[in-house]
Computed example of a mutant assay.
Amino acid sequence: MPQQPSTDLTVAILAGGLSHEREVSLRSGRRVAGVLRDKGLNVEVLDVDAELLPRLREVAPDVVWPLLHGSTGEDGSLQNLLDLLGLPYVGTGAASCRLASHKPVAKSLLRAAGLATPDYAALPQSLFREVGARAVLGAIEHRLGMPLVIKPASGGSALGVTVVQTAEELPEAMVACFAYGDQALIESAVTGTEVAVSVVDLGDGPRALPPVEIVTDGPYDYDARYNAGRSEYFVPARLDEVQMRTVSDLAVAVHTTLGLRHLSRTDIILDDAGTAWFLDVNVAPGMTETSLFPQAAQADQTDVDELYVAIVRAALGD
Rank of each mutant, 00 (worst) to 15 (best):
P2L: 05
Q4I: 12
Q4H: 07
L9E: 07
A12N: 05
I13R: 09
G16L: 06
G16N: 02
L18S: 04
S19A: 12
E21L: 09
E23T: 02
E23G: 03
R30Y: 04
R30H: 07
R30I: 01
A33D: 10
G34V: 02
D38C: 13
L41C: 07
V45W: 02
L52A: 03
R57W: 10
V59S: 06
D62R: 13
V63I: 11
G70N: 01
G73R: 09
Q79E: 11
L81R: 02
L82G: 06
G86M: 03
Y89W: 02
V90Q: 01
R98L: 07
A100T: 13
A106G: 14
L109W: 12
A112D: 15
A113G: 08
Y120S: 13
L123D: 07
Q125M: 07
Q125A: 10
A135V: 14
V136S: 06
V136T: 08
L137S: 15
G138M: 11
H142N: 10
P147Y: 13
V149R: 12
I150Y: 09
S154A: 10
S154H: 04
G155M: 08
S157H: 05
S157F: 08
L159Q: 10
V164I: 05
V164T: 04
A167W: 04
L170N: 00
P171I: 14
E172F: 10
A173P: 08
C177R: 00
C177Q: 01
C177Y: 00
G181R: 11
D182L: 01
L185N: 10
T191P: 03
V197Y: 08
V197N: 07
G203T: 08
A208K: 02
A208W: 02
V215W: 04
D217G: 04
P219V: 11
A228C: 03
G229M: 09
E232S: 08
F234C: 08
L239C: 06
E241M: 05
E241Q: 14
R245N: 04
D249Y: 09
H262G: 05
T266P: 14
D271W: 01
D271M: 09
W277V: 13
L279E: 14
D280Y: 13
V283W: 07
P285G: 12
T288H: 05
T288I: 06
T290M: 06
T290A: 03
P294S: 00
P294D: 01
A297Y: 00
A297D: 01
Q298A: 15
A310Y: 04
A310T: 02
A310D: 12
V312C: 08
R313S: 04
A314G: 01
A315C: 03
D318C: 05
